[in-house]
Amino acid sequence: MKRFLSITLRLVISGVLLALLFREHDLIADIAPRLGALVTNWPWTVAGITFVFLSQVLTALRWWIILRGQVPDLPFLVLLRTEIISAFFNISSVGVVGGDAYKIMSLSRRLPGQAMPVSVSIVLDHLTGLISVAVLFTVCMMVRASHWHEIGHDLRMLITGYAMYVGVALLGLLAGWVSFTPALLAWGRRTFPRTMGSPRLERVIERLTRVHEVAALLWKRTLSAMVVSTGMHASFFMCFYCGLRAVGGAAPVLDVLTAMPIVDAAASLPVSISGLGVRERTFEALLAGLARVPEAVGVSASLAGWLFSLFWGVIGGVMFLRARHAAITAPEAQCA
């Protein structure tokens, strides 16, 4: 019941946000013609779809680098296929939890008894992603620091708020790293035996301790994964630049790369379906403030970038259904 209410609420929020957007920027007069330009400006459309695929390849590579330290014989193409199919669940579910759940279930069936390494690798994969996007955002802000005074007050507040959010997240990550060292955990169990000994907390501590151990043991792989992750985020963000050009807009690449970490963070909040509505409003505000992009163009560009991701989500759905059909028909063929 609670899950049903959560999904219903997110559907309502996405619907309301999109309705307000299309009321402000007429869907037929302002948005549809620009989305129709995706066909006319097909080179940019193809480039955007290609950048999304490149980001999926790099995401699979990042995950493979971490996971291969625990499961050496796992082929890269298996993870790439899993990553593409998970894109379908990310779009069709209410958040990235759907994609992660599919990854765990898919590899757990392929690797019996390896559910813990798979889960740990996904947690570590997301943590490297957090660090790399923070690095990318910091570099972009440093490059365009001389233009800071040109940004409006509201936009400066939004960027500052995101910078504080990332800073607090990184400090929390550092505190968590220190907290899960064996010596500090042993002290905590001695000092707070009842709290630290509760079954639910013990399971959480066990998993996070495992993440700490893997990161400490495979630190070279973790650093390599961070480098790959930076390229992955840049590739994904570039698909929205291609979307902007495909709908007839224009802005410096640096401005799009500066805006996209904030847009991506807003879209990942669990308040809407696949970030719809939230992503468009945030992208619209940031591109208008950073590069004077007309608001209707910003909304259209954001929708174009989402459509590029949707393309690979549909491909992943087809791959999933075909694999499922093959798994069902194989036993029937054996019986015959």
Rank of each mutant, 00 (worst) to 15 (best):
F4R: 13
F4D: 03
F4M: 07
I7G: 04
L11A: 08
V12R: 00
V16C: 02
L18S: 09
L20P: 05
F22S: 03
R23E: 03
E24S: 15
D30Y: 00
I31W: 01
A32H: 11
G36W: 11
A47T: 03
I49D: 00
L54S: 03
L54Q: 01
V57T: 12
R62H: 00
R62T: 01
I65R: 06
I65A: 04
I66E: 08
L67S: 09
L67V: 11
G69E: 15
G69P: 06
Q70H: 13
V71M: 07
L74R: 12
P75Y: 12
L77G: 11
L77E: 11
L80T: 00
R81H: 15
V96I: 14
V97R: 06
G98W: 12
G98A: 12
G98F: 14
D100W: 10
D100N: 13
A101C: 14
K103S: 09
M105C: 00
L107T: 00
R110D: 10
R110Y: 12
L111T: 01
Q114E: 12
M116L: 12
M116G: 08
M116K: 10
S119F: 06
V120Y: 03
V120L: 12
S121M: 00
L127Y: 03
T128L: 05
G129A: 04
V133A: 09
V133L: 14
T138Y: 02
M142S: 04
M142C: 08
A145V: 03
H149W: 04
I151K: 03
H153V: 13
G161E: 12
G161N: 14
G167R: 10
A169C: 13
L174N: 04
L174D: 02
A175H: 03
G176A: 14
G176H: 11
W177A: 13
W177Q: 08
T181W: 07
W187H: 07
T191N: 09
F192R: 14
P193T: 01
S198F: 10
R200Y: 10
E206A: 14
L208W: 14
E213C: 05
V214C: 01
A215K: 06
W219I: 07
T222R: 00
S224N: 14
A225S: 15
A225Y: 05
T230S: 15
G231S: 06
S235G: 06
M238I: 10
C239Q: 09
G243W: 02
G249Y: 00
P252W: 13
P252R: 13
V256K: 08
V256A: 02
L257N: 05
A266Y: 05
G275P: 09
L276H: 08
E280V: 11
R281K: 14
T282S: 14
G289H: 07
R292M: 13
V297W: 04
V297H: 04
G298M: 03
V299T: 02
A301I: 05
L303S: 09
G313E: 05
G316A: 02
H325F: 11
A326T: 09
C335D: 11
A336E: 04
A336R: 10
